[in-house]
Each structure stands twice: as structure tokens, then as C-alpha cells.
Amino acid sequence: MAIRVLFFGRLHEVVGAREREIEPPDWVDTPAALIDWLAAGDARIGAALSAPSVRVAVDQAIVERDSPLAGAREVAFMPPFSGG
């Protein structure tokens, strides 16, 4: 099933897109695996997305990188928040 992936803040500049519609292979079953697949050999994207300060949300809930991705419609990568 297609997943919408969102890149916020400086991450969209690293990735080169604010969002992407993707159809990942079956082995992409966690956000961590999704990072490997998205980076696909691009070390810069891999490093930016897997930085410990980056938070991941699956269907608008903040989750750990090893949580299941099954059935997800939307995944977001979020660099450190800076509100207020």
C-alpha cells in the first residue's frame, strides 16, 4: 500500500522534497527499515534521517524507530522542535 512520507524543517532540504508517495517493499516493516530504504545508498539522507534527535510519527503518533509500520498511511520525519 502507498505511504505518504513527510519531511519537516531542515530535513526537506536534505531530502529535496517536503513529501513523497512511496510503495516500499515488504521488508520495510519499521521506520528504521524505511530510513534504510529511503536513503538507498545516499549517506547524507541516511545520516540526516537516522540522527537521534529526529523524531518519527506514524499516522500522527510519535513512535520508536523499531515500531511496526504495517498498515501505515503516513510517516513523518521531524527534526528537533522549535516552537514558541
Partner: peptide, 9 residues
């Protein structure tokens, strides 16, 4: 709000 709300500046 500074560090726990999803905003980017």
C-alpha cells in the same frame, strides 16, 4: 511549546 510542540523555525 519551545521543545515539545512540532514547529520548525
Amino acid at each position: 511549546l519551545k521543545s515539545e510542540a512540532p514547529f520548525w523555525k
